[in-house]
């Protein structure tokens, strides 16, 4: 017997230093650098004082801190001891828009309130609607669903003015509840689609079995379907939290001056032309605003992907 026949057939398994791999990794690293660079610059700038920013080396972080001079709204020059956290403190509690110098904290809280109410309400409504449409068909349920889906293709801007009139007549215009209401309404089409398709992908026999067991509309939803809807629920929560937190349009239109969310305030800080432009404070404010969605993605990335995949299998 020749020894050749005993040798393993086919090409040898590849190693990590194969040239294809090097190309792939080079590409991935370059892409990451490209996308992470702005974040890096925002972060290091938010820890610099203005003198260092004026030095112009935007890629290099600041390591030592000294005195800092700024101008207050009255035009006086103020000198203060600088710390690495000074821009963050200023962003949180001192930065001015117009004559109001309370930092972004009130608006941060506004955003928290809006998100905390809008997310559960919109999800609860869409969950019920999607479940009803998929399992309790009524005479015009298909037509109703079509209208809802078509609704998601209409640009929000078209509906802004009618919505302003509607909320004004409801007597809630220019309040936080108005923003919550608007988010709930505009979140409905996409969330309903999400839940309906997810529930439609569950075996219909499960629903039948629950009905034979005597469970009604709500009991089937809460005791049978909801525990199975965790993946899609994760998707919905992430979608809504980031969407609502990042929203600018509805905030600026419906909230009213004292209720502006974070995003509107951030814009006002950037566009205010009074005094010196404090890049470090603006960057700090940006990081604070962006921290919530960022945190959500980091904490739930795995479940998010799982949920998206779960919803994508059948639709």
């Amino acid at each position: 017997m020749s020894t050749e026949a005993l040798d393993p057939q086919g090409p040898k398994p590849r190693h990590w230093y194969e040239w294809e791999r090097i190309v792939v990794y080079t590409f991935l690293i370059l892409t990451s650098v490209y996308f992470l660079m702005p974040l890096y610059i925002v972060i290091i700038t938010s820890f610099k004082d203005l003198d260092h920013i004026r030095d112009g080396n935007i890629f290099w972080p600041q390591f030592s801190y000294g005195e800092i001079t700024t101008t207050d709204p009255a035009g006086n020059t103020v000198t203060a001891m600088a710390h690495w956290w000074s821009p963050w403190y200023r962003a949180m509690f001192e930065v001015c828009t117009g004559l109001e110098c309370r930092g972004i904290t009130p608006n941060f809280l506004n955003s928290v309130i809006i998100t905390a109410w809008s997310v559960p309400i919109s999800i609860a409504v869409a969950l019920t609607t999607g479940y009803a449409l998929s399992n309790w068909p009524f005479k015009f349920s298909e037509a109703f669903f079509t209208v809802l889906i078509v609704g998601s293709f209409i640009p929000f801007q078209v509906m802004l003015y009618p919505m302003v009139l509607l909320t004004k007549n409801m007597g809630i215009y220019s309040t936080l509840s108005c923003v919550v209401f608007v988010h709930t309404v505009f979140g409905l089409p996409i969330l309903t689609l999400l839940f309906r398709n997810y529930f439609a992908s569950l075996p219909v026999e499960l629903f039948k079995a629950a009905r034979v067991d005597g469970a009604g509309f709500w009991r089937i939803l809460f005791q049978v379907f909801l525990p199975m809807a965790i993946p899609i629920m994760t998707v919905a929560v992430i979608l809504q939290v980031t969407g609502i937190w990042n929203d600018f349009l509805f905030g600026v239109v419906f909230a009213g001056l004292p209720n502006y969310p974070m995003t509107v305030k951030l814009n006002n800080i950037f566009t205010s032309t009074f005094g010196i432009k404090e890049y470090n404070v603006e960057m700090a404010a940006t990081m604070i605003a962006g921290s919530v969605p960022l945190l959500i993605y980091f904490l739930s990335g795995k479940y998010f992907i799982r949920g998206i995949a779960a919803g994508a299998v059948k639709g």
Binding site: P203, E205, L206, K208, A209, A210, V212, Q223, V224, P227, M228
Partner: peptide, 11 residues
């Protein structure tokens, strides 16, 4: 009723 796919409540 007993179903083909068992239809047990998974959780």
């Amino acid at each position: 009723m007993v179903f083909q796919s068992y239809a047990l409540y998974p959780q």
